[in-house]
Each structure stands twice: as C-alpha cells, then as structure tokens.
Design a protein around this nucleic acid. Structure first.
Lengths: 348, 348
DNA sequence: CGGCGGAACGTAAACGTTTTCATCGAAACT
DNA sequence: AGTTTCGATGAAAACGTTTACGTTCCGCCG
C-alpha cells in the first residue's frame, strides 16, 4: 500500500491499451486477445489496482451489498443469525450492511430508509413490519425477504420458524412422558412467535389430551414474567404436571420460582421451554426445549434473497418454513436411557 | 415509492433553480435565500428525492460507512459488541459493514481487502493481526482501530480490556475472602487475553500472598478444557482453596467436574471466571466473575475511530484501556450481606 | 479482386453528485 | 453618479467506471 490509488486509466496507460479493454479484461467479458489480457492483468497487479466500487455502483446501479435490519435481539440469536447471513453472503460475493437494535416502528423505518440506494436487497426482521410499512418505506423495486413475520405480502416472501409444529411436538412429548396436564406460559400479547406457539399448544392438547383442561398463563418472554407465572402456577388449586413456556428465558424464571418454593423439577413438575438458548444447557436441571438452527434461518434468507435479486420475482408462494426439533434434557423428566420409554428392539 | 427514482436534476427543474443550488440547500452549505431554500425543499419532498450515495461517494471520496472485521465470537460478546458499535455509529450518521467469522489469517486479510474503498474506517478484532498484516492489507490512509490486540502500531490505536487489573482484583478478592491458595486455569497458549489475565494472577499472588505457591493449569477457554482442569485440580495432593479460570466457559466446565465429584462450591472450593457471560448468572451456584461492558468497548472503538477520521491522526498514545469489575456471586464464597467483609462505616 | 463480416479495440457518453469559478445584480461606499 | 463589494446563482468540470457505438484490420467468399 504505497502511493495514491490507481485508477483504470493508470492501468490502461501502463498496459498500453484503452480503458475499455481494461474493463473488459477485468470483468471477463471476452472479446480480448489473450495477449492484451495478460498485459492488462500484469499492469493491474503491478499497480495494485482495485476498481472503485462507488464509480461502479453509480453506473451499474448495483452495490453488491445487502442490508439486514434487526431488532434488539438477545445475544445468541443475534450472532447466529448474522453468522448465517454473513457466511452465505460472502460465498455469493456480497457485503453485509447491518442495522440492529430497533425498538420502534419509526426506528425501523429510518433504518430501512437510510439503506436506500446502498443495498441491492434487504433482510428484515421486525415485529413492526406490516404491509403499509413495506409499501411506505421500501423502494418498490428493492427485493426483500421477511424473517419470522406474519405478513403475507404479494411482493415479499418470508421465512418462518415452524413454531406451531415445534410447540406441538414438545407438548406431545410432555404428554407422552406421562404428564397428563400441561400448562402454557405465553409471550407478549401481540407477539407473533408467541401466538404461533400457543396455537401449537392448543392443537396438541386438542389432539392428544382432548379431555384435559387448557391452562394458559400470561407472560412476556422475560425471566421475570416466568418467575411470576411460576408462582401463579404453584398457587393453583390443581397444579399441572408439566409447564411449557413460550421461550427459554420464561422457563428459566419459572424454574427459579419452583426452586425457591422447594418444588422439584422434574419430579414434582416437569418444565420445558422454546429456543434452545445456551443457558438451557447450564441451568439445573438442564432445560428441555425446542431448538431451531438460527444460522440456517439466516442462510436460507440470504439464499432466497439472492434468488429474488437475480430476477425471478416473488411468485407469491416462495415463502419457506424452517423446521425445529425437540431437544430432550433433564427438566422434562424423560431424559437419559429411560427404560420405560426405550424403543423396542429392531426386528432384524 | 411510486415511480422511478428522482435525481437532483428533477428537483432542480421542479424548483426552477440550478442543481448547484439544490446541492447547496440540501447540504446546508448556506449562500442561498430562504426563499429558494423553501422551493428546493418543497420540490425535494414532493419528488421523494434521496441523493444517490454512490454518486456522492464517487466525488467526495467518503462513504459514511465503517467496517467491522470480527472473528467467530460467541453469541453474547458478538452481539454486545455490534450493538455498541452500531448504536454509536448511527448516532454519528454512519453505516456499519460487518464481516464476521474469520478463523484464519488469509480469511481476515480477504475481508479487510474487499472492504477497501467501501468504508471510511475500520474496526478490527482478530488475533491474527500484527504489524505486517496491517501494513500489507490496509490502505495506508485508511483509519482503523484495533480491538483487544497486543500490537502497538504507530498508525493504529487499539482499545483493550484491562485484563491485568481485572484478574488482579479477582485474585485479591478471593484471597481476601479467606482462600489462602488459589489456582489459575489458563486459556489457549498464544492468546493475548489469557496471557494478560495470567499476569494479573501472578501479580496479585506476588503482592498479596507472597509465600503461597503458584498453581497454574493449562486450558483453552473451552468448557471441555475446564472440565479436565477441574479433574486435574481434584487429583492434586494439596488442593487449592479457590480456582480462578481465565474465562467463564472454562469455569463452568470446572464446576461440572467438581459437581460430578461431589465437591461443593464454594464450601469445599471456591470458583471464579472472567467475562461475565450470561450463563454465569444461571449456573448453580451462580458464578463470580470479572465483568466487562462489551457494548462500551464497541462504542469507545467507534468514537475513537471517528476521531481518527476527522483528521487528528494517531498521536501514538491514544490507545485506551477499558476497566472491568469484579462481580461477586455465589461461587466465590463471599456473597450476600456478608458481615465479615462489610465496609467500615464512613467517617462523616 | 472487391466487397463483406466479424473480431479486436478505442472513443465518448452516461451515471448523479459536489465544487470551483464566473456572472449578475444590488447595495454600499466615495 | 461611478465604482466597488458582496451575496446569490448558474455553468461546467470532475470523480472512475461501464457500455454503446465506431473504427480498423484481417480473412473469406463470391
């Protein structure tokens, strides 16, 4: 990195060709002798030439950058998501412009707007986006994919976690483990994920324990709310045999309440969460939960976005849904080589 | 977002002025009548005009974007760091280009190079950077600040966590709590943070327990290595009364080994980590540790970077160091309103 | 041998800004 | 009243590319 930066003109002069030829060679457009190709490459290398991305963007209209607009996520979710997006983006030769920590509509709108013209596409994860928001803040020709969003917009596909199936599977698992009554602690009232998970809970109960009564306690995804919900549950006349919290932090709070009251988990009451955050493995007892590969979510989003960017418009049905898995640990009472639930031997 | 995008010419035509005046108004350069100002603003608003950032970058040479190059960090550290940087950047009207998950020199070098020309400055956190790396991959006129790096480069300042002081404080705390012998579990051999923390351990021991023998076990920052180290410690002829691990994950692994062996923490042996990751609060017993405000680290880095970008070059001494604090929880045996270690009443 | 097609290459326009410089008029001075 | 000064404005250059279009040259076919 010695002197001033070399331009395409310098390369052209050094290689004794026109700038058009330099451009052709460096972009691999063909129509150039191998001879001049070599001359150009040599000159470019010699001068440490790097094309000016601003000039290029100006004329091509492409930035080779995609933008990610994210809310104030908890650590792990955030890092995994970015990791997934970034890795996939790099593989496609794209840069990643990040704007995180938005906690209001106006905040998110501002972020989206300032990215205008700086990106070729966007990945948006925000509970505030809806149809009007998108129509009002996104240039109509900018490809975008929505993450974990209920909105079904004609122009923008979305990728969702299969909350319903995941919750359903966990509730079934609890039921199968012999806990005939299971309570559910919700997330914040308007939250999409929470609503979906509740649907899963209801569906599983309806299907596998039709005569059991539903037992739904309000929470808001915080540890604090889980703690209160736990106390509430202990105060109930007829305690449930198991508790399924809408996310892991809530479950952890609930666990604290149980511990404090001397109620044993899972012996007295089983417990499960959703998300499989890192902490889940380290609380005592370790927390059974529903896991999602967040990195895959990010990767899928980017891949879908690049498809959009490469012309094929949103056909209206390219939304995808990502499956999630029950991860069994100690808190649900069905852990380890449990002889009772062991599989029958294979027939061969 | 109705039609095609409006350019400065369109605004000029609509406002019946020259493009120069439009530019002047929109950039607040003065030398324009309030009358024309209004006309321009009105026209711009009417056309939904947004200046083309590529064209602007092309001529001004500034991108209003800063780049962050980061390794494969664990969740919380990563998200907090980005959050700190992003928030500070937004406050300064800067965008954030992220490239994460680098696990090799070549990887990091590539990331740095592709950002060339797209950013006005860089924040780099990588164990691979050293003098030659910087000289070879960074344009000489590009401001950059290093995070948590030992390199003392004339051109690039760095911001470091005060590992030594933090470790020293924790060891002193353990000693003060009555644990006369404390062992130390290191991080990976070449790791800078680990080395600094070890220095702190040695310094504190030398100062506050000069006759005690040093007891250093090798680890590598992983939970697994902590587990092995824990077993090793239990096998020692003369067990230490306390263990200080170079990071929290190691401490957690160590804790698992102790639990498994039926050794009680902190009664039989006290334990402390470093980093204050989220998990530290949730293990049983909760882990005493040394906390750092990572978000502040990111924020400081950005602020320092903007100073560099605003002209005042690196004076050679604008490296900063961020203090960290002992956070006392259960595992060190000095928790709660411990009368023995209460402060004497103030003299007034 | 003349015309023609195509490959290689160069010229110049275009992208949308910022910024220098010249112009113009009016106000302010002598 | 003539001249100067100054503030507001516009014309045009410049930034570094890509790309449409022309030009040249060569080989080929009729």
């Amino acid at each position: 990195m010695t002197t001033k930066k070399a331009t395409i003109k310098d390369v052209a002069r050094e290689a004794k060709v026109s700038i058009a030829s330099v451009s052709r060679v460096l972009n691999g457009l063909g129509g150039v002798t191998t001879e001049t190709q070599n001359a150009v490459r040599k000159a470019a290398a010699h001068l440490h030439y790097v094309p000016d991305s601003a000039a290029r963007s100006l004329i091509t209209g492409r930035t080779h950058t995609i933008g990610a607009v994210l809310p104030d996520l908890y650590g792990e979710f955030f890092s995994e998501l970015i990791r997934g997006i970034d890795l996939a983006a790099r593989a496609k030769g794209l840069h990643l412009l990040v704007s995180s920590s938005h906690d209001g509509v106006e905040d998110a709108a501002a972020a989206v707007r300032t990215m205008r013209g700086r990106v070729d596409g966007m990945i948006i994860l925000s509970e505030f986006v809806d149809g009007p928001f998108l129509d009002g803040n996104l240039p109509s020709d900018l490809p975008a994919v929505l993450l974990d969003s209920p909105v079904d917009h004609a122009r923008y596909p979305s990728i969702n976690i299969d909350n319903i199936a995941g919750a359903q599977a966990m509730v079934k698992h609890l039921l199968d483990a012999g806990h005939e009554s299971v309570a559910f602690i919700t997330g914040p009232a308007g939250n999409y994920d929470s609503q979906e998970r509740e649907k899963g809970y209801r569906a599983a109960m309806a299907k596998h324990a039709p005569k059991a009564k539903l037992n739904i306690i309000a929470g808001d995804f915080t540890e604090e709310s889980g703690y209160r919900a736990g106390q509430e549950i202990l105060a109930q006349a007829k305690r449930p045999r198991a508790v399924f919290a809408a996310n892991d932090m809530t479950a952890v709070g609930c666990l604290m309440a149980f511990k404090e009251a001397g109620v044993k988990v899972p012996e007295d009451i089983a417990l499960a969460g959703f998300d499989d955050i890192l902490i889940a493995r380290y609380v005592t007892p370790s927390l059974s939960t529903v896991g999602v590969s967040i990195a895959d979510l990010g990767k899928s989003a980017l891949l879908l976005l690049t498809e959009l960017m490469e012309g094929k418009g949103h056909t209206g049905s390219n939304s995808r849904t990502l499956r999630c898995d029950v991860v069994v640990r100690e808190s649900c009472g069905a852990h380890q080589t449990n002889v009772a639930t062991k599989q029958p031997p294979a027939l061969v």
